[in-house]
Design a protein around this nucleic acid. Structure first.
Lengths: 344, 344
DNA sequence: CTGTTAGCGCCTTCAG
DNA sequence: CTGAAGGCGCTAACAG
């Protein structure tokens, strides 16, 4: 019916006049178990015949596939890759996984039962969990003992591998920078301040640093970016009064870019009327007008760290949990203005 | 060793006091072969036990997995998701594949042998090929008879499923619009005009429409976007002379956004000094300054079409090849200025 | 260094 | 409507 992979390990063995075990050994690089001459001969036959091992059979026999699930939490039907940070990070994870010989299986979901199905059903070698699974994490952890690494997630689970950036310090740096620039009335705009641990930590760092400077962030100035159709109204409500904030700290460059865009449509200029800061330092940060002052992080490095940890745990199931927290740093461009004499 | 999926179909069968065949039939929805009462009972047990079918075993027995490979061509180590069009499209394909019960396996590669390995090794149900595999297509097609659909690729292979947009007309519309706005000296900036069929068609449509208006595109005004460090020089060479083009047609919004950014750094204003047009109408097109005039296309619709075709061919191996070409349309914003009296 | 023997978990004939 | 038997392609003990 289908022109499937017709050549099998058994046929290679017959052709070479050896047992299947021997062929299996040369394929899996179990050197030392096979003589150089045999290896040579078998490899030649494999090359000639275009043999490709059947991964399903391999997985079945070994009780483990070389698949690694990349799980991105998002609402039903939401395209996670519209979030440029997510796209970039998952792209980097994919590259790294491939480099190490794994097959990345992608899953967008909001339901941990899907994750369970993938992890168990495929006897996945490992999983990279991206984003804010905070409310699902407990289930996921209990599901199985598949090696996994959590990224950009905060939930106190012991014995879990984590890779994240120093979001707390990121918030602090932002507060420090903005106040150093003379701003005293500030606002915070997140993705989902309620649900995301990342947002919460950035907010915490931001607030703490303000407090240390005897400033404070009033609750009505802590916002979540609404749907595009409500962004104008939100900014109007936020800015159209005498004691309005003079600087907005956004937890993502994408948010900042959208905010800048809406501000301009409202006839406010950045940074003359309002200053804006982002987070992530994605390529788009250099392309907004004005170019965005933001907090940089090493996304590719984070992806590499995540995969390294994962592979380490795949190879050694008893390896102790690892937690990596990477630095963030200020990237100064021109979306924040200096206020000479504090307004008000 | 590993806490793998311990409950198997066999155990369910024993628990229910029926044969494995019966359980298999209820799992695979082979209704009609099992009595309602039995179905009920078995489903209850499955639910209670948290049974998850082993996909590897399923794939092995059926000689086909429910995996669909998503192949994105790119150079070794290149993060394809930095291209926002690619990210968006693959995200949409992923969503659609999941909705239909398939598992998306991601592969970034420039080497068709990787593709072969994936397709054969996993007994993949199908494949979605994204991007310009033009020079590899002949190999891929020959590799196996796995159902596949090509997107945004042009290479005359008979009996292949294609999904693309009407790039030729896109080029025409751009030429028409720009000349209607009074521009007579134009330039074309692509991703890789040499290698990409998409770019070539857009260029062809663009040139043809110009020709029809007795205008022409001189060869030195057909360019490929260079690395960031050479973009300034390129634009200087292009624009710093009396007969410089007054409008630039870019084959991607991302290119246009970068160009605009570099132009501004050079102190040229868009669209007063130079007009710029993009292609794709991604979210970022609405966020550049000035907002980008571009050609719109329905990316999610394209993803849906691609997956629909694929599924149709997975279900019916004899289905005739399908070719879908979607419309593109002008999205007018403000990156193109009207020239009243043609300069020169 | 090499071969033999059992499965891995499921699906798919074919009989009842 | 249900069951029994064989095999998908590979790996993993064991024996030699």
């Amino acid at each position: 019916m289908r022109d499937v992979n017709l050549v099998t390990l058994k046929e290679i063995a017959r052709e070479a006049g050896v047992s299947m075990t021997t062929v299996s050994n040369v394929i899996n690089g179990n050197a030392g178990r096979v003589s150089a001459a045999t290896i040579e001969r078998i490899e030649e036959i494999i090359r000639r015949s275009g043999y490709v091992p059947n991964q399903a059979a391999r997985s079945l026999a070994q009780r483990e596939s070389h698949i690694v699930a990349i799980i991105a939490q998002g609402h039903e039907g939401e395209n996670m890759f519209r979030n440029p940070y997510m796209a970039e990070f998952i792209g980097d994870v994919t590259i790294e996984l491939q480099r190490q010989g794994y097959f990345p299986l992608l899953r967008f979901t909001d339901d941990y039962r899907d994750v369970e199905r993938d992890l168990l059903g495929w006897n996945v070698a490992g999983a990279v969990l991206c984003g804010a699974f905070d409310r699902n994490l407990q289930y996921i952890k209990g599901l199985s003992s598949v090696p996994a690494v959590l990224t950009d997630t905060y939930f106190p689970i012991p014995d879990m591998n984590y890779v994240c950036v120093d979001d707390l310090t990121g918030g602090r740096i932002a507060a420090q920078y903005l106040t150093d620039m003379g701003h005293v009335r500030l606002a915070f705009i997140g993705n989902s301040v309620e649900e995301s641990g990342v947002d919460q930590l950035r907010l915490q760092g931001f607030s703490e640093e303000l407090a240390r400077r005897s400033l404070s962030l009033s609750p009505e100035n802590v916002l979540t970016l609404p749907e595009p159709e409500h962004q104008e109204a939100m900014l109007r409500a936020l800015l159209d009064h005498p004691a309005a904030p003079t600087a907005l700290f956004c937890t993502a460059d994408r948010i900042a870019a959208q905010i800048i865009h809406v501000l301009r449509r409202q006839g406010r200029s950045v940074p003359q009327d309002v200053s804006v800061m982002g987070f992530d330092d994605l390529p788009l940060a250099g392309m907004t007008q004005p170019p965005l002052t933001t907090l940089g992080q090493d996304i590719a490095g984070k992806a590499r760290a995540a995969v390294d940890i994962l592979v380490r745990h795949i190879c050694d199931k008893t390896a102790p949990a690892e937690c990596i927290q990477q630095d963030v740093w200020l990237v100064e461009r021109s979306s924040v203005r200096r206020i000479e004499s504090p307004a008000n």
